[in-house]
C-alpha cells in the first residue's frame, strides 16, 4: 500500500500538515494564498491516525514568519509546518496561538462599532483551550463557537 501522501513533493517551500479538513480553505484565506503566484498543491480528506481526516498544503518557494503562521492557530491549532530546502525538511514548527489577533475574524457582537464601520478587528486572546478572546473595541468576550470569519 502506498504510504506516501498523494500530494507531490516540493523542492523548496513550506508544507503545512495536520490541518482539520473543514479548515483548509480558511487557512488558505488567512495566509492569503489566493494571491500567491507560486505553485500550491493541497490535499483534502486525507487519512489521519490522530484526526480521522486532515488536509495538507504545500507551497513552493514560500516561507512564513511565526507571526504570519500563528494566525492560523484559530482554525488549525494542531497544524505542523515543515520548511523544505532541496527536498529535505530542515525545520519543523508547530503553531502557537498569538496573544493578539488582528483581522481574520469579525466581532460577534452586532452592536460593536467594528461591524458598523470599516475597522480592522483586534482581539486579546484570554485563553487557549478553549480559545476565548476579548474584542479590544466593545470589550465583549467571545469563544470558538461564536467566531465569525471575515
Amino acid at each position: 500500500m502506498e504510504k506516501h501522501l498523494k500530494v507531490s513533493a516540493i523542492k523548496d517551500g513550506t508544507v503545512i500538515d495536520h490541518i482539520p479538513t473543514k479548515a483548509l480553505f480558511k487557512v488558505m484565506k488567512i495566509l492569503q494564498l489566493e494571491e500567491c503566484l507560486e505553485m500550491i498543491t493541497f490535499g483534502n480528506n486525507l487519512d489521519s491516525k490522530a484526526m480521522g481526516t486532515k488536509s495538507i498544503i504545500k507551497i513552493a518557494n514560500r516561507f512564513f514568519a511565526d507571526e504570519e503562521v500563528n494566525k492560523i492557530a484559530l482554525v488549525a491549532p494542531h497544524a505542523k509546518l515543515n520548511t523544505i530546502r532541496d527536498y529535505e525538511v530542515i525545520e519543523k514548527r508547530v503553531v502557537e496561538t498569538p496573544r493578539e489577533i488582528i483581522g481574520i475574524i469579525n466581532c460577534f457582537n452586532p452592536k460593536c462599532i467594528t461591524n458598523a464601520e470599516t475597522i480592522t478587528t483586534r482581539f486579546e486572546v484570554l485563553s487557549n483551550k478553549p480559545i476565548t478572546m476579548k474584542c479590544l473595541y466593545c470589550e465583549k468576550i467571545t469563544n470558538e463557537n461564536e467566531m465569525v470569519y471575515s
Binding site: 452592536k111 460593536c112 462599532i113 458598523a116 475597522i119 474584542c135 479590544l136 473595541y137 466593545c138 470589550e139
Partner: peptide, 10 residues
Amino acid sequence: RHPMEGSARY
C-alpha cells in the same frame, strides 16, 4: 456618547 459599543475606543 454613541450607541455602538467600542465607538469611543475607535
